[in-house]
Simulated scan of single mutants.
Amino acid sequence: MEEGLGEPSVADNAKPHGATAAPGAPSLAIEARGLVKRFDGTLAVDGVDLSVPEGAIYGILGPNGAGKTTTLRMMLGIIDPDEGTRRILGHDNPRDVARLIGYLPEERGLYPTMKTYDAIAFMGALRGLPLAQGRERGRQLMEEHGLGYAIERQIRQLSKGMAQTVQLLGTLVHEPKLVVLDEPFSGLDAINQGKLEKLIRSLAERGTTVIFSTHVIAHAERLCENVAIIAGGKVPYAGSVNAARDRIPAQVRLETRRRDGEWTRVLPQGARQEGAFWHFPLPESGVEPLLRALIEGEAGILSLSIERAGLHDAFVAIAGEAAAQALDAEPDAETAR
């Protein structure tokens, strides 16, 4: 089992400089409008709009090649969009607030001969944290995350899980107000994926905005209130997880003692029978009128359950079967289910 992630140690965050919002509306950590990016004539991102409230945990969902990484890099100012605008922590130029941002790229990379706390300090220094302070915080973070025994080890002496933890701590060492994680769960075993989810929740509880990309929908469903779905460089949906799930009617699963009779006429059109169970969408009138009709018709109800659609079902309905199949084909897709 890989050594893993622990509790975060990030100071309480103040409001970002220059952030403004309409009275009563939540302040936005990120606002992107009409982002477009082409590479060698190929359209990689096609008119992406995103709004991420301060303090939110926001997920960007889609298979590899959908445009997730390119979108994140445009928002962070690592690359410039060909068209569109982005505003981050109240600034039009993302580079103006680079020191307030922690970014974990999809491509993991640390200098193999560096000691762990030096690697953390080095990443903090890239965001303006003095090296001496970074080394002190690096040691403290390693201790707090249960890796104190590895403080003097070189990166090349660590397991893959430990190395990913060190890089994540380096992303947080300068106490950013916005944390951007590109496929952070990739390569972690199920236990460490759970620990990372706990870490993300703890960051948000402290007021830090967390935005992460993933091709594993289960993480977003557990963590996020709002998500954006990216497929083919476009965003067919951006909004709440609940609203996405509500696009598909809840399904009723009914088991009765009697298999036939007049009572079957009260079942909605399209109801199908599989063995001892009936399956059909929940009627718009709700379940109460149906229950009364079943009781009056002496159907003999043995069990009745209402199953709300999951985010994966919503993804299929919104992005299409091809995008869903590409999503499910990713290596880590089954691990988190």
Rank of each mutant, 00 (worst) to 15 (best):
238 A>G: 14
52 V>T: 05
208 T>Y: 00
314 A>C: 05
53 P>F: 09
170 G>P: 10
255 E>Q: 12
222 R>V: 02
126 L>W: 03
309 A>M: 05
138 G>F: 01
12 D>T: 01
323 A>G: 10
43 L>C: 05
128 G>C: 07
299 A>N: 06
307 E>D: 07
248 I>L: 15
119 A>V: 13
55 G>S: 07
207 G>T: 08
80 D>A: 15
96 D>G: 00
33 R>G: 03
226 N>F: 02
65 G>K: 09
120 I>R: 11
58 Y>R: 02
44 A>N: 06
23 P>C: 08
26 P>R: 15
237 Y>K: 10
120 I>F: 05
168 L>N: 06
262 E>R: 14
275 G>S: 11
257 R>A: 09
328 D>L: 15
178 L>V: 13
337 R>T: 14
152 E>V: 04
130 P>S: 06
77 G>F: 07
229 I>V: 01
146 G>I: 14
9 S>P: 00
319 A>G: 12
178 L>Q: 11
36 V>D: 02
95 R>A: 14
59 G>N: 08
201 R>C: 08
79 I>G: 06
155 I>F: 04
134 G>V: 07
293 A>P: 00
272 R>I: 13
297 G>R: 07
19 A>S: 08
114 M>L: 15
36 V>W: 12
227 V>P: 01
255 E>R: 15
179 V>T: 01
271 A>G: 04
289 P>R: 07
66 A>W: 08
20 T>R: 13
227 V>C: 04
246 D>W: 00
319 A>D: 14
58 Y>C: 10
308 R>T: 07
304 L>E: 02
200 I>W: 07
244 A>I: 12
123 M>L: 14
133 Q>H: 04
199 L>C: 06
145 H>M: 13
181 L>R: 04
85 T>E: 10
162 M>H: 03
309 A>K: 05
328 D>V: 01
295 I>A: 13
2 E>N: 08
335 T>P: 01
298 E>T: 04
23 P>W: 05
215 H>Y: 03
151 I>Y: 00
151 I>E: 11
279 H>W: 07
40 D>V: 00
50 L>S: 04
19 A>M: 07
11 A>K: 11
142 M>P: 00
333 A>D: 04
189 D>A: 11
23 P>I: 08
5 L>H: 03
279 H>Y: 15
136 E>F: 02
49 D>P: 12
7 E>M: 02
253 R>S: 10
176 P>E: 00
291 L>F: 13
247 R>Q: 15
229 I>T: 00
261 G>V: 12
329 A>S: 15
183 E>P: 10
87 R>N: 03
41 G>W: 13
271 A>H: 08
126 L>K: 03
337 R>E: 15
76 L>M: 15
162 M>A: 06
218 A>Y: 04
313 D>V: 02
221 E>S: 12
309 A>I: 05
78 I>M: 09
